[in-house]
């Protein structure tokens, strides 16, 4: 039985690789965390942050009631606060902060940046049918393309599926920041900064 499952798993791996070969809306370059951070300091980037670590016991049953959603765990809250401190210390210029209406995203945005604007179209697209989730992905891409980041960096706080659907990048794990460079309408995926890497980078810089 176990052998059977592992063969299926292998098949999915191959399928996954094939599907990631499709043309993505953004080009990709891999940069180290310190390169990413120094790039952010001069503005011109978009940061997509997946909400920080959550309490996996709870489930989302009501989008209008925080008590009936999967919320940030204590670890998640600490992660978000730490990221916020590092961004402030590094003096990374931040422009608009947009958040999904889910409480775990709003809390993440509040703890890191102390401000945010809710964008209903950032809501978790995995819960929607194919047509709607495609639309939400497309919305994210075009909003990023229209953002004016000549002086600073704009931030989107959201979930996994929207970014995967819209830009072909899967943000993992929770709390990860995905960095895109913006030149005109072109977005280039530069890399990701995991929650723990921010403070390491700060220590290196100091």
């Amino acid at each position: 039985m176990k052998k059977y499952i592992s063969i299926i798993g292998l098949m999915f791996l191959i399928l996954g690789c094939l599907s990631s070969l499709e043309a993505e809306p953004v080009s990709k370059q891999q940069h180290s965390t310190s390169e990413l951070i120094s790039a952010l300091k001069s503005g011109g980037h978009i940061i997509y942050i997946r909400h920080a670590s959550t309490d996996l016991e709870s489930k989302d049953t009501d989008l209008s009631d925080c008590n009936r959603q999967r919320n940030l765990s204590d670890i998640g809250r600490t992660e978000a606060k730490d990221i916020g401190l590092v961004i402030k210390r590094l003096g990374i210029p931040i422009g608009d902060v947009y958040s999904s209406p889910y409480c775990r995203c709003k809390d993440t945005a509040q703890l890191i940046f102390d401000r945010y604007k809710i964008d209903q179209n950032l809501q978790f697209s995995i819960k929607k049918d194919r047509e709607t989730s495609d639309k939400l992905g497309q919305h994210l891409l075009s909003k990023m393309q229209m953002a004016d980041v000549s002086q600073h960096n704009d931030v989107f706080v959201g979930h996994t599926s929207n970014l995967r659907d819209g830009l072909g990048v899967f943000p993992k794990p929770e709390g990860v920041a995905v960095i895109f460079q913006k030149q005109g309408n072109n977005l280039t995926f530069l890399g990701m900064i995991k929650p723990g890497q921010w403070s390491v980078a700060l220590e290196q810089q100091e």
């Binding site: 791996l13 399928l15 995995i126 899967f170 794990p173």
Partner: peptide, 21 residues
């Protein structure tokens, strides 16, 4: 069930998402 069980096996969140989707 098959998707989830194989996910537990190889543990890649993105592939689970794509298949689950």
């Amino acid at each position: 069930s098959i998707v989830l069980l194989s996910a537990i096996e190889h543990g890649d969140e993105e592939i689970v998402y794509l298949q689950g989707r």
